[in-house]
Design a protein around this nucleic acid. Structure first.
Lengths: 384, 384
DNA sequence: CTTAATAATTTCCTTCGTCAAGTATTGATT
DNA sequence: AATCAATACTTGACGAAGGAAATTATTAAG
């Protein structure tokens, strides 16, 4: 696993993971945290320091009683190694270079003229070259690539089973991207990648159950339960967008009626706004502008969308009881329009103590998708 | 852990668990199944055989090519040890004695005159005595008791945090029941206990994600994800009954409106049947009889209830993607009335491949709750 | 009666992590 | 200044757990 494929003791992996996600931390604190002896931590940390992944920080100011040898906390050397993350969408590739702590060091993107596998791979190869050969000399310290894509992905074999947006089926993306880029490639579903990023470097740190809801064209949800990603036996999981919200609601492309996505997806919002105003040329941005300027009809569309999303989130809270939930709107600040409705609807529909689950609602810069992809490759380096 | 508190190698636990749940199985097959060397299995099995928990079966008839030494499969000696399981309801205690394979050997019950802790514990003590001193001489081979109760239970400390039905709060039930009965006592939420039983000895064997939906007075759901029970950070999980079904539906006791339980709970069905027929004295059984005799109004009530349950189940399938789902109606066959509606509604609302998730719908003899409690104590003996 | 195939066991060895003892570094107390 | 107590870390001996490979056991097929 580290640096070039040797097997590594379990304690080494868990020490690395803990330092990575829980920042500078002393060996003794690690031992308590991981339920190991401090001797085991010392031994596990040594090779990581030798390989340059960890460093010992200077003793910090003390807390507590005051006596005793000061700790020398272990910290990640974030620039020891870099990782490329690429998110594939229907019309664009978005790429980033991240350091070990998933800090974004460089980014770039490329329009896609077509979505066939060969074309996308060619573009992906060039995007990676641009990123690695640009300013910063990342190439020499980069060995891994993570790719995020919507649809049904088998992470363990790095294959895309089915991606409706791109019309891909059974594509050995990891293998092919690996050949083109020369990087060890991980592939993961985009929402799961983002969820992993949040688990390791965001609000999911330190809790062992956690949900990330993405609101945009579609409405998705990544779940961490008992510290592990929920994958779904039939390749389906986190489909919060297709939970029923209003049995008399509009038809959904899934064949049912009144799904959350059919009420609160971006397309659905535009359609409802057009119907309400009688202006068939309205865009999503127009709808946002109208709602912000006080248009009651369009405002009601956003309110209803927020209510639907809140109900979906409440369903997650009622069923799996995550310690916290992050709601992240694709791209923009537009979703502030329905944030209060999300919260109100969640409070109403959450059962008992589930209503105590903290909700973070915030924008999601598009680059974050690519960062999620990079996080998957970091995780695969560390080995869980 | 075994027999009296010594620590035991991980492989011993996993071998025991695998033989327990996956029936007679050869050492070589176990090694494959558990990803251990056959030497490790041989070593792990020995102490279990010596302690009388496992036995070696005679060689079975062969399958496959035909040559080679025949396997001597390992099997559980089910009568090596017995376990008492008790389910506490508002007005009754139901108790069983189970063997190691959760086979019910004896059962008994006791009406409760009151629900205060002292009274319940006294009755529980007598119930356990009745069971153990009755025919069968179980006492000498019984060391453990499992108690199942609705509400918020902390299994790790064997405490009842809050049980609305009994109005209990922060009761150290495990400790107190242990003192009275002399048995090491485990306490678990009733639905979780039943789910554990299904995971170990029912349809959950061999899959690592799985849902059990209970339909009765309330509508609940136990979840196994990645092989582990979902517990919920805030003490809430599996509250499928409070997922929204119809925003214009009847008020629910939880404060929201149109929850699955408000449409499909036993009380809700009775209320709707009364309203529909204008007969305020109608019981649940009357409603069942009417529906079966072709009453369209009451039939529609059951149809709607089934649709609500199906939608809730679809939400589970869409969110966590279990490998299979068992729906078990409290007690009786009455729920055949809405079974087709459950299936139809599930198919409509399940997204994509989630609709492939097999659904088992079957009656749930009341004794099963107590068996679930016993299963928890078996699991706690084995140690996960 | 060999040979091939499969199952189980045995022996020896490696690995990993603990234990207990010792070293390091500080503030407080005398 | 010397000592002590507290906390952090390191070291080396040890033991438990599981693996590899050789060995034994048992069968069917030729």
């Amino acid at each position: 696993m580290f640096p070039y494929g040797e097997a590594v003791a379990p304690a080494v992996t868990s020490v690395f993971t803990a330092v990575l996600t829980e920042g500078p931390i002393s060996r003794v604190a690690l031992a308590r945290r991981l339920d190991l002896s401090s001797a085991a931590v010392t031994k596990a940390a040594r090779p990581l320091i030798e390989m340059g992944y960890l460093e010992e920080l200077a003793a910090t100011e003390r807390t507590g009683p005051g006596a005793g040898r000061p700790a020398s906390p272990l910290a990640i050397r974030a620039d020891r190694e870099f990782f490329v993350g690429v998110k594939i969408t229907r019309d664009e590739l978005i790429g980033v270079v991240c350091d070990l702590r998933a800090g974004v060091r460089a980014s770039a993107h490329r329009r896609l003229a077509a979505t066939d596998v060969d074309h996308v791979l060619t573009e992906l190869g060039e995007l990676v070259d641009d990123l690695l050969d640009g300013p910063g000399d990342y190439r020499s310290r980069t060995r891994r690539l993570g790719v995020a894509i919507s649809g049904d992905v088998d992470h363990s074999t790095a294959q895309v089973r089915y991606s409706p947006f791109l019309r891909w089926r059974d594509v050995p993306l990891g293998e092919r991207a690996g050949k083109i880029t020369g990087l060890t490639t991980s592939v993961e579903n985009d929402v799961k990648a983002l969820t992993t990023a949040e688990q390791w470097f965001g609000e999911g740190v330190g809790v062992d159950s956690f949900a990330l809801v993405t609101v945009g064209a579609g409405i998705g949800c990544g779940l961490i339960v008992n510290g592990r990603l929920v994958s779904g036996s039939h390749g389906v999981a986190g489909e919060i967008g297709h939970i029923g919200f209003d049995i008399d609601g509009p038809e959904c492309h899934c064949g049912s009626r009144g799904c959350v996505e059919a009420v609160a997806g971006a397309d659905a919002i535009v359609r409802q706004a057009r119907e309400g105003t009688g202006r068939p040329e309205l865009t999503f941005e127009d709808a946002v502008a109208l709602a912000r300027s006080g248009d009651a009809t369009v405002g009601a569309v956003f309110a209803r969308a927020g209510t639907a999303i809140g109900a979906g989130i409440a369903a997650v809270a009622n069923l799996v009881g995550p310690a916290r939930i992050v709601v992240s709107g694709e791209g923009l600040s537009a979703y502030d329009l329905f944030e209060p409705h999300i919260r109100a609807s969640f409070q109403r529909q959450a059962f008992g103590a589930a209503a105590d689950c903290p909700l973070s609602i915030r924008a999601l810069p598009f680059e974050q998708w690519a960062r999620g992809a990079a996080t998957v490759s970091i995780k695969d380096l560390v080995g869980s």
